[in-house]
Design a protein around this nucleic acid. Sequence first.
DNA 1: TAAACGTGGCT
DNA 2: TAGCCAAGTTT
Length: 345
Amino acid sequence: MFKRPVFNNTLLNWYQANKRQLPWRQTSDPFKIWLSEVMLQQTQVITVIPYYEKFITKYKDLDALAEADEQALLKDWEGLGYYNRIRNFQHAVKEVQEKYDSKVPDNPDEFFKLKGVGPYIGGAVQSIAFNNQLAAVDGNVLRVMSRLNRDKRDMTKASVQKDVKKYIESDMPLEAGDYNQALMELGAIICTPRTPKCLICPVKAHCEAEKANEVMEYPLKKKQKAKQEYYYNVFFILNDKDEIMLIKQEDDLLKGMYELPRFDVDTSIESIEEKYNLTLSQPSAPIGSHKHIFTHKIWYMEGYIVYTADHNEDFIPLSDLQNLPMSVAMQKMIQLIYPEGESGL
DNA sequence: TAAACGTGGCT
DNA sequence: TAGCCAAGTTT
């Protein structure tokens, strides 16, 4: 094991001299810090920055976000992915508004009970916003710690992550928030997954993997499962009032987002007419296709145009298309017939 | 415990 | 370029 007190001081000094000026480091507002942590979940810093700026401009405080329209939030979150994050965040923020007088709890036990607050976000917010002595163990920290200690355990297991958290908290510097960010920053800037910059690493003297010339062997990684593939026909169902049929997704995947009617490739037009009580023209020839890759599945979509004389609440004016939250998968399909911004005509 | 959950950057 | 990975949480 490496010498913690010396390591901690070295790391903190390096952080103070080298930290990036990120937008959420310019505030001490617990609400904004919390928001940034929710956005940063499984999402790169460079991707988060514009979303963070948009949200703190539009939703200036916790009450503003608590009282926002959910669909408007989803629209603003559009493209960031993992859409349950913003739904859970609003749920949590509403609870803070009602139970804690709109003040983010500085009591970890209360904060950890809120929706969407897990071991990482709980530790991050409590340490950064309130200087509570808790660790924030993310992918960066797990990689750094596995290399420092030549730790061969499976870092994807919750039990191991819990152990690493306990280990860090066993010798936590007083500046808990800075220390957590220093550990993460080291992982993001120096101790990177593929091309770690060991030559300029401030703590290489403490690194067991570096001493053994085995840095690239950590963390241990296991082969990931193959993604399941799905084949869909996607329909642009248009009526004579310049309206298009859209479905609000209620399944877990992309819940709350709107999508074009999407069916397994072997679904007949007749069964679609029956399901939605519509009279449809024969589909056009395929107008294009798109392959969309999710974390755990792949969609192969082929687009068709279909006409109808019917109108109902599932049809929305084409001019409203750009106002509804839509997944990137569907945006790519819509671009097949309305290339680059022409969808809002 | 392990699978589900989005999207884009990077090599 | 195909695949890994990103300031993880929920069920």
